[in-house]
Design a protein around this nucleic acid. Structure first.
Length: 471
DNA sequence: TCTGGGGTCCTAGGACCC
DNA sequence: TCTGGGGTCCTAGGACCC
């Protein structure tokens, strides 16, 4: 049976979510800003028509916004995640297999549907159901590969006479559409590849589809070769109905005001460690590796406000999901890269090198006084503490384990209940329990001055741990 | 004054092994 | 003067995505 995919994508998702609870804004221009009210990241149809471009800094278009009476919102991820979950669970009722690809789009496997229903009619019924049940408008692209389904979706959005659904299962229709679209519209072709492809005379999607595969493989990569196969109707990218665990977890934010003092940066980094570890536990992984990075603004006048960016990485001896392990390590790493005299704009942490949370490799030569992982950092990184002292201050006060025991079975018996209890409390009531390291009055925390109310959720905050996909 | 956040995959090159 | 061949693993960096 031939594969058939449908790509369902919500129109102007964030802006549409904001309009959902504000019928008074139905025909008004609406834009949504990134974290910290920095850039425009979503625009309603009306805002696009007024020429507001994607990614433009808010401060640069304030006059335009006032002149055209555009309504502006800070991003409200709790709201968007909740609406997204409703759309996705509806799609799961309509199609046998669904892959949630991002907060506002999903691939459906509808192979076989054509046996009992016209594909365009199927698309229209999906559109109607999502509109009737949730109030969101979606477009549907249908094709024998994901890359072509993406292209079909693009066409459905671009041309209104399609009524929001394009069936691209026919080869002639595929070629007709590809001839009309620039190669940069193809999924997987970004700015750099567009430039290089243009140089060798490839401008349209069709020219790419007709280019010799061997040449592309040699001059570019297997990725491009696969894209071309997909454009020619050969499905290379399977539908992944079960979301895989993350292989790395990042938490980072720009500050609302510049940070110039180490103790404030320590708070911020502790906050990001806390969030990253929450996500890590939510997918039941343990991590070994931690990276901390800091940077000043890349947009400042370099003469007056010099640029600095640095990162440091270290690994625990054993993988862990305990926030305390990473707080300690992060503190050491931050001291390594911190330099006085800069105006820092952003920092963050990244967890990597993941292990299954349910299996654990014991150490062959375990140090019985050191039942848990000791950060593998050179002593010179921690001028105040020798490694020995670090291990003592690290383990002893925080866990009540028999410190002098050769019983290897105890080596990983650091109480895990603490983290579970903290996660459970914080799920019941957002951010009630936390480590003092992250500070109480976070003056540097992000600015969201135009936030809409928590219409559908208990907290107008970041999505609860484990709730759907984030973006 | 003010410019987002979070991911994945691939490749090249170095280190190391026999 | 002349210094092999083949393989794996890891990492950094680039490119892409939403």
């Amino acid at each position: 049976m031939n594969k058939v995919f449908a790509l369902v994508d919500c129109n102007n998702f964030y802006a549409s979510c904001e309009k959902l609870f504000r019928p008074d804004l139905a025909s008004k221009a609406v834009v949504v800003l990134s974290n910290n009210d920095g850039c425009v990241i979503a625009r309603s149809r009306e805002a696009k028509a007024l020429g507001i471009s994607m990614g433009v800094p808010y401060f640069q278009i304030k006059e335009q916004i006032a002149a055209h009476d555009i309504v502006v919102f800070s991003s409200n991820y709790a709201l968007y995640a909740d609406i997204s979950a409703r759309v996705m669970s509806t799609l799961e009722q309509l199609a046998p297999k669904v892959e949630v690809y991002s907060i506002d789009e999903a691939f459906l496997d509808i192979s076989g549907v054509s046996a009992c229903s016209n594909l365009t009619e199927f698309g229209l019924s999906v559109r109607k159901t999502i509109s009737d049940w949730i109030g969101m408008t979606v477009c549907v692209g249908i094709a024998p590969s994901k890359t072509l389904a993406k292209l079909a979706n693009h066409a459905a959005k671009k041309w209104h006479k399609t009524a929001g659904v394009v069936d691209l299962t026919d080869r002639n229709r595929q070629r007709k559409l590809m001839a009309l679209l620039p190669v940069s519209e193809v999924w997987g072709i970004g700015g750099q590849l567009t430039k290089r492809l243009n140089k060798i005379g490839i401008y349209s999607a069709l020219q790419l589809a007709d280019a010799p595969a061997k040449m592309l493989r040699r001059q570019f990569s297997v990725v491009l070769e696969r894209t071309v196969a997909e454009l020619n109707g050969e499905s290379c990218l399977a539908l992944e109905a079960i979301a895989a665990n993350k292989k790395e977890i990042v938490s980072s934010r720009a500050f609302s005001e510049r940070i110039t003092e180490l103790h404030l940066m320590q708070q911020a980094v502790a906050e990001y460690v806390h969030r990253a570890c929450e996500k890590l536990r939510a997918q039941q992984s343990r991590a070994k590796q931690l990276t901390v990075f800091v940077r000043t603004s890349p947009f400042s006048d370099a003469g007056r406000d010099p640029f600095y960016s640095n990162s440091a990485t270290a690994a625990l001896v054993l993988p862990s999901d305990d926030t305390r392990d990473f707080l300690h390590l992060a503190e050491c790493l931050l001291r390594k890269i911190w330099k006085d005299g800069y105006r820092y704009a952003k920092s963050g942490v990244m967890l990597a090198d993941f292990y299954d949370g349910n299996t654990e490799q014991f150490q062959l030569f375990s140090d019985s006084t050191n039942p848990r992982a000791l950060p593998a950092i050179a002593p010179e990184l921690v001028p105040a503490l020798s490694v020995h002292e670090a291990s003592i201050s690290y383990n002893a006060p925080q866990c009540k384990l028999p410190l002098l025991s050769d019983d290897h079975s105890t080596q990983n018996r650091r109480p895990q209940a603490l983290m579970s209890v903290i996660d459970a409390i914080n799920q019941l009531s957002q951010a009630k329990v936390f480590f003092a390291a992250k500070g109480i009055n976070q003056h540097w925390a992000m600015k969201r001055q135009l936030l809409s109310p928590a219409y559908t959720t208990k907290w107008a905050e970041i999505p609860k741990v484990g709730s759907g996909s984030e973006r």
